[in-house]
């Protein structure tokens, strides 16, 4: 992985300052961030928390591949991508993406690209927890089509 891309899976709380520190660059005038947070509802159901399951090796490799694709489209950009593994309460941070670039347009566009691709391609699964102890794994994008 290049020194301008950092990806990781964490079981400790994700930290936005760590993300910004990594992408900080004297030649860059813009940092764009995406923070994914557990919300208290989904499709009309009350949600009390979320568990994230992750294939760590493949997920980190997928993050890196996505960032490298983005660097080809938006030259000179820097990336930090971290995703949480384990259980989070409402308000817990599940993913942080930070992108820096010389000018703001590249940061906005490439950050959006990374989160959209991450959701479609990364081997990560969410289990929602509901009142009265019920829980359910959420449906998602099949990777079988990509193979």
């Amino acid at each position: 992985m290049s020194s301008s891309i950092h990806t990781e899976i964490l079981t400790a709380p994700l930290d936005i300052q760590t993300a910004c520190d990594f992408v900080m660059d004297d030649a860059h005038g813009a940092i764009d961030t995406f923070i994914g947070v557990v919300r208290n509802h989904h499709e009309g159901n009350q949600v009390q928390g979320m568990t994230y399951d992750v294939h760590e090796g493949l997920a980190e490799a997928t993050f890196a591949a996505i960032c490298e694709e983005a660097q080809e489209r938006w030259a000179g950009t820097k990336y930090y991508v971290a995703h949480y593994k384990g259980e989070l309460p409402i308000g817990g941070i599940s993913v942080i993406i930070a992108v820096s670039s010389a000018h703001r347009a590249d940061s906005f566009e490439s950050c959006r690209y990374v989160i959209e691709e991450l959701k479609k391609r990364s081997p990560i699964w969410k289990k929602e927890h509901y009142p009265e102890g019920k829980s359910e794994w959420l449906p998602g994008h099949s990777l079988a089509e990509a193979s």
Partner: peptide, 10 residues
């Protein structure tokens, strides 16, 4: 190996 069901990260 691993079997990967449909994904939904983020």
């Amino acid at each position: 190996l691993s079997i990967l069901p449909p994904v939904c990260g983020g």
